[in-house]
Amino acid sequence: MSFGDPNNPYGQPQNAPQGQPGYGYPQQPPQQGYGYPQGGQPGYGYPQQPGYPGGPGVPGAPRIASMGRRFGARLIDGLILFVIYFVLSLAGVAGSISAIKDCDPNASDYQSCVDDAASHMVGAVAAVVGALMICSLLYEWLMIGLVGATLGKMAVGLRVVKADTGQKPGLGSSIIRWVIPLVGSLACGIGQLVVYLSPFWDKSGRQQGWHDKAASTMVIQN
């Protein structure tokens, strides 16, 4: 009976092929953490970039604008437009008053002169309203589309971006965003107020108003 080689007490074949299982010491498991990730495990390779805007709590996602800041921005913009409206109205009324003063009370056409001045005042008011709408359009449309913020939004640190890319809205999305509240204002201003309050009912976590959803935009904090 052969008891094996005394120099090989473990009884393993001396000519065992290298790298074959079952011989010698057990193989070490393959090391992880080098090169590209295996099996899609997190923590290796290049980190995934979150899509814009990510979502609430996602690292790197933008901060959604609070309704308090949005109200403050709207208030500042409203004051700016009111100053423009006041200046234009004052100029129109002053011109009409001057025309009435020019009427001679002793002249036979005094009443017709006053009537003409009153008609001029009504026309001036209508012109002021039209000018205000044009100013509001240019103010909101151009600044939101090209800059991404009005003066009011700049003052409180807000800007409007495309919801899918984070870029400036552009003139197309900006005009849509302006028209929606304008249409709402035709119902005695109630519809416009509802549009501006609609972010409270947004379930997406982005606080998008109806005008934002129609234009595919969102308001964020700088």
Rank of each mutant, 00 (worst) to 15 (best):
M1V: 04
M1I: 03
F3P: 00
D5V: 05
P6L: 01
N7S: 14
N8P: 02
N8H: 13
Y10F: 15
Y10G: 01
G11V: 04
Q12N: 11
Q14W: 12
N15I: 02
N15S: 10
A16L: 06
G19T: 09
P21M: 02
P21R: 13
P21I: 10
G22L: 09
Q27M: 07
P29E: 12
P30M: 06
Q31Y: 07
Q31W: 00
Q31L: 12
G33R: 07
Y34S: 05
Y34Q: 12
Y36C: 01
Y36I: 08
P47S: 10
Q48I: 11
Q49T: 15
P50R: 12
P50K: 07
G54L: 04
G54T: 11
P56A: 12
G57I: 06
P59L: 05
G60W: 03
G60R: 08
I64V: 15
S66F: 10
M67S: 01
M67P: 02
M67K: 01
R69K: 14
F71N: 01
A73C: 03
R74K: 08
L75T: 09
L81Q: 13
Y85A: 14
Y85R: 02
F86C: 09
V87P: 00
V87H: 01
V87F: 13
S89H: 07
A91I: 15
G92M: 15
G92Y: 01
V93L: 12
V93T: 06
A94E: 00
I97W: 07
D102G: 13
P105M: 05
Q111K: 11
C113M: 05
V114C: 03
A118I: 06
V122I: 10
A126F: 15
A126S: 12
A127F: 14
V128C: 06
V128S: 12
V128T: 14
V129L: 08
G130R: 04
L132C: 06
L132I: 07
M133N: 08
M133E: 12
I134A: 15
S136E: 14
L137W: 15
E140N: 08
E140S: 07
W141F: 09
L142M: 13
G145Y: 08
G145H: 04
G145N: 08
G148K: 05
L151I: 15
G152N: 03
G152K: 03
M154C: 04
A155T: 13
V160R: 04
K162F: 01
K162I: 07
T165R: 11
Q167I: 00
G170T: 04
S173D: 01
S174E: 00
S174G: 05
S174C: 04
I176V: 12
R177F: 09
W178I: 00
W178Y: 14
I180G: 08
P181T: 07
P181E: 00
L182K: 05
L182W: 14
V183G: 08
G184A: 03
S185F: 13
L186H: 08
G189Y: 03
L193A: 13
V194L: 15
Y196L: 10
P199V: 07
P199N: 06
P199K: 08
F200Q: 09
S204L: 10
G205H: 14
R206V: 04
Q208S: 02
W210G: 00
W210V: 01
D212C: 03
T217N: 03
M218H: 02
